[in-house]
Amino acid sequence: MPMQAHEIETLIKTAFPDAVVTIEDLRGDGDHYSCMVVTPAFAGKTRVQQHQMVYKALGGRMGGELHALALQTKAP
């Protein structure tokens, strides 16, 4: 069952309450999203670490239920 955009946002915001999360359903199929996450929690972290933090927040769904999530991360 593909994930809904709001589910992705809720999971990320649960882990990073102060994050600004912008999600776009690239193909309208619930399977290909682009997602920008901006949170102070990323400060001082490498891009790889920032993405790993988001993947952890998604609780192992990345690469499984969630097939394609074009992710961009930034500290404010």
Binding site: R47, V48, Q52, G60, M62, G63
Partner: peptide
């Protein structure tokens, strides 16, 4: 500790997957 493929390594170090390589 990276859930997807592709994965790029340079001189033994993990650099990233598609998003990060494209952004870099």
């Amino acid at each position: 500790d990276w859930p997807t493929i592709p994965q790029l390594y340079v001189k033994g170090e993990f650099i990233g997957g598609c998003d990060i390589i494209r952004e870099m």
